[in-house]
Nucleic acid binder design. Structure first.
Length: 863
RNA sequence: GGACACUUAGUUCAGCGGGAGAACGCUUCCUUCACACGGAAGAGGUCGUAGGUUCGAUCCCUACAGUGUCCACCA
């Protein structure tokens, strides 16, 4: 027997372990069609947040739904080593525990990092468990494990041999806090307040000077020339002459190049090839020096004279003062301009010339773009995100993949200690004593991009790879399309010749109640575990997946979690009731259409319609729409209507009536449980196991299938008329300040196939006497109350005037409807251009309203 | 500078080429034997503004305004 109140803690306890230990999560039933998905591997940097909860719940719903449809589902778990992020966290922890992190060796650090990883992996496992994820733990992977490292090396070597990986000196984004290079997508551009500084660059052997503007005066130590546009009348005459760098007194040539915009600044641009990507190109073009002026921590280096050792921003200020003192300062303009910050450390990124490893993007991007035009393209859901992907691909620049870190896949390149030769190879050279391995590791995303295939054992042709790759769906947030989705696509095409997943379902971000992004600095993050603790995982899951449109952001609003919980309680109690009325020894039977009362038939119609609509929307991954259909069925049709009205039939003297009702109640309840199950597996399992007949677990059940043969829509209209009538009676009581349970004498004039249950129902819940007297009612004398819509007459009540008012109001309503329909139908354009079905519909409406009007007028006249 | 979203009830959000919906909140009533985490009834919206397409626009198109996000090397 179920508890009176739904208690998520009790319901959820132990279920996950039972499922897991029975092997329900383990894939491999070859008799079924495979359906696979990989989890986006969470970083081992900390606990999972609400965004993860949302992401994985969507995945789990899809998996449970597909499994219930008879697929051999495989949902592969795993985690990401998250290079920079994890290294930073581990370093911080070591630092706080008093360890001198500047003295630690690579090996010592890695040992600590693995300990860290184990600790956080355990936390993440706990959270997956609490969320109820159907993960196949027999296939769990970690991006740094041996097999994946093999795949990484394989890919690196293969790309290198094809010329798609190269080592080169280029301008990269330097994070001076982490002291590593970053890729472009790891740089966040923020609008910062800054200044445009204007300085005089005196022309050598002249009294004149060029005014040059810069936002980063400290880079002046790396200036090699001043550039003007060759068309610029102001400066033409100076080209070929020299100016003096006011920072250090160096003489710099004035050169001409079209790159310079005449309109911008003063039209004269300083050129710092080692610290600006555009200046670098000019430096290449004119074979200029490319002096680097920063140390790795972005302090000034030995090329900066007395400023050596100063922080770059301190130097900026000091230099400004010195230039002012020398009389070469012109002005400062405050500006707001985009400044690059490191995604992880938030430090201002310094563009810096550096020797790094790069992936050549154009060939890979072209391949991905071409595939997207074919039939094996990745289908984005919602579709618009394909555009995001394509646009990024179209302008993707070479990808800097080397990182000056320890935590990651070490680049499989070896330098000969004697000759300097570079060897890129899967394995270390035999004469390793003569070689030194590249100390850099790879960008985290280099291994994550292989995730959809490396996890199945690639490059080996394993049975799993054959069976589960390409995966069916990938679910992730739109914020990592650039980081991850696009890279998986081009790399999978390059390495396997196949797309990594057939569909890519994109969701938004969880925001706080005020619509702000959840962040550590704001302290507005919500811990999913705390929510589960209070409302249960089911309520959280239901809230997360039913409160937004696909691809749209969502706000976390606690009241809505509460509302979800209330809904589950509603289902719980309706189940409790149904189970309580099913007799001892109840045996479920297939519902026999011929035996159904109109009311039974109506609820079955609605049930089937609900199954159809829910399934339709599940297929589109529109969980909000799907759940709404079920919600409406549960509340309006099942609980408010059928459950109440069926009480009459359950008390019937006719055992057949009783039995059929029991079967219908059971059928509805079971399907509700099965339909809600992917969303809220714990409560669904609990209720399922309380059904009089059930399998070992709901996880072995089949998803309901729409059965059109059991539907008979012909009863709908009269049932809806009954509902209308009931509503009228309730309104009557409220308006007349009668108690809800007040008994009334009632006579009816229903032009419907009245069935016994209905009259009994009315007697029991609404009226003291009900007489069915047909058309003669219209000639009844005495005081009447009329609710014309439902053809209801209530006798022995004062208020003829009131009745007349009501009738008149109804008459007005019908007249307005008739006029509306007539207006449309008398429009020749509507008749000729609107679809025929639409026109017919209007004609039917018109006829119906005309009939209603006639009947109302008749009643009115007889009063 | 590009791109993409969003603007609908007090609030958070669905929806849709043919009579505006939900949740929460609010008002009134009800502890009747599934559920007060409940039930019944109700109030509340010229669907951002202006044009256009259409027989018909909240929905499609254009412009504008506001909000948000992403991309972008202008010194």
């Amino acid at each position: 027997m179920l508890e009176k109140r739904y208690n998520p803690k009790e319901v959820e306890a132990g279920k996950y372990d039972t499922w897991k230990s029975r092997g329900y999560f383990t894939a491999g039933d070859k008799s079924k069609q495979a359906f696979s998905m990989v989890i986006p591997p969470p970083n081992v940097t900390g606990k999972l947040h609400l965004g993860h909860a949302w992401d994985t719940t969507i995945q789990d719903i899809i998996i449970r739904y597909k499994k219930a449809q008879g697929y051999d589902t495989c949902y592969l778990p795993g985690m990401d080593h998250a290079g920079i992020a994890t290294q930073a966290k581990v370093m911080e922890k070591l630092y706080k525990s008093g360890i001198d992190v500047t003295k630690i060796t690579r090996e010592e650090f890695l040992k600590k990092a693995w300990e860290w990883k184990d600790e956080y992996a355990a936390t993440i496992h706990d959270q997956w468990k609490m969320m109820g994820l159907t993960l196949d733990y027999t296939k769990e992977r970690f991006t740094l494990d041996e097999g994946l490292n093999y795949a990484v090396r394989k890919v690196f070597v293969s790309l290198y041999e094809k010329g798609l990986i190269y080592q080169g000196e280029r301008i990269i984004n330097w994070d001076p806090v982490q002291k590593t290079a970053l890729s472009n997508v790891e740089v966040i551009h923020k609008d910062d307040e800054g200044a445009m500084y204007y300085f005089r660059y005196p022309i050598v052997d002249s009294n004149e000077a060029l005014i040059v503007a810069t936002t980063r005066p400290e880079t002046m130590f790396g200036d090699v020339c001043v550039v003007v546009n060759p068309e610029d009348e102001r400066y033409k005459k100076y080209v070929g002459m020299k100016v003096i760098n006011p920072a250090n007194g160096d003489e710099l040539p004035i050169i001409a190049d079209e790159y310079v915009d005449l309109e911008f600044g003063t039209g004269a641009m300083k050129c710092t090839p080692a610290h600006d990507p555009n200046d670098f190109l000019i430096g290449e073009k004119y074979h200029l020096e490319k002096p680097i002026i920063f140390n790795k921590d972005a302090t000034m280096n030995e090329k900066c004279g007395k400023y050596q050792g100063m922080d770059r921003f301190v130097c900026r200020q000091a230099l400004l003062e010195d230039i002012k003192a020398a009389g070469n300062f012109v002005k400062i303009e405050k500006i707001v301009h985009p400044v690059g910050h490191s995604e992880r450390s938030d430090a201002v990124v310094e563009p810096m010339l550096s020797k790094q490893w790069f992936v050549k993007m154009r060939p890979l991007a072209e391949q991905a773009l071409a595939n997207q035009k074919g039939k094996d393209k990745v289908e984005f859901v919602p579709e618009r995100f394909e555009k995001t992907f394509i646009q990024w691909m179209e302008k993707a620049e070479d990808w800097c993949i080397s990182r000056q870190l320890w935590w990651g896949h070490r680049i499989p390149a070896y330098y000969n200690k004697h000759t300097g030769e570079v060897l890129v190879s899967m394995d270390a050279p035999k004469d390793m004593e003569n070689w030194e391995q590249e100390s850099d590791v790879l960008d985290t995303w280099f291994s994550s991009q292989l995730w959809p295939f490396s996890t199945w054992g690639w490059p080996e042709k394993t049975p799993d790879l054959e069976r589960y790759f390409p995966t069916d769906v990938l679910v992730t947030g739109y914020d990592i399309i650039f980081f991850w989705v696009s890279r998986m696509i081009f790399e999978s095409l390059e390495q396997t010749g196949k797309r990594p997943f057939k569909q890519c379902v994109i969701h938004g971000l969880v925001r706080d109640e005020l619509g702000r992004k959840m962040s550590k600095t704001l302290g507005n993050g919500v811990d999913p575990i705390a929510v589960i603790d209070e409302y249960g995982a089911d309520a959280l899951r239901y809230f997360l997946t039913t409160n937004s449109t696909p691809g749209q952001d969502m706000r976390y609003i606690e009241e809505k979690v509460q509302a979800s919980s209330n809904y589950l309680n509603k289902i719980w109690n309706s189940a409790r009731y149904v189970l309580s009325v099913l007799p001892e020894g109840f045996k479920p039977k297939k519902v026999n259409k011929a035996e159904l009362s109109p009311l039974d038939q109506y609820i079955i119609n609605r049930l089937e319609e609900t199954i159809k609509n829910v399934t339709l929307n599940m297929e589109k991954y529109d969980f909000n729409a799907a759940s709404n259909h079920l919600y409406n069925f549960v509340y309006d049709d099942f609980c408010s209507q059928y459950l109440e009205m069926s009480k009459v039939a359950l008390n019937s003297d006719n055992p057949k009536t009783k039995e059929v009702t029991e079967q219908v109640l059971y059928e509805c309840l079971k399907d509700i449980i099965l339909l809600i199950y992917p969303y809220t597996p714990f409560i669904a399992e609990e209720l399922y196991l309380n059904l009089p007949e059930h399998l070992e677990s709901i996880m072995l059940e089949r998803y309901p299938i729409y059965n059109k043969d059991i539907v008979d829509a012909s009863v709908n209209e009269e049932i809806l008329t009954l509902f209308e009538l009931i509503k009228d009676v309730r309104n009557y009581k409220i308006e007349n300040k009668l108690a809800p349970n007040a008994k009334l004498d009632l006579s009816l004039n229903l032009k419907i196939k009245v069935f016994d249950d209905f009259v009994t129902y009315l007697n029991r819940f609404t009226f003291s006497t009900v007489k069915l007297i047909g058309e003669e009612i219209l000639s009844m004398k005495g005081d009447l109350k009329v609710y014309p819509k439902a053809n209801l007459l209530i006798v022995n009540e004062a208020g003829k005037e009131d009745m007349i008012k009501r009738l008149d109001a109804e008459i007005e309503f019908e007249k307005a409807e008739i006029e509306r329909a007539n207006r449309m139908l008398s429009n020749p354009n509507f008749i000729s251009k609107a679809p025929e079905a639409k026109v017919n519909l209007e004609k039917e409406k018109l006829a119906k309203h005309e009939q209603n009007l006639a009947s109302l007028i008749e009643k009115r006249n007889k009063l």
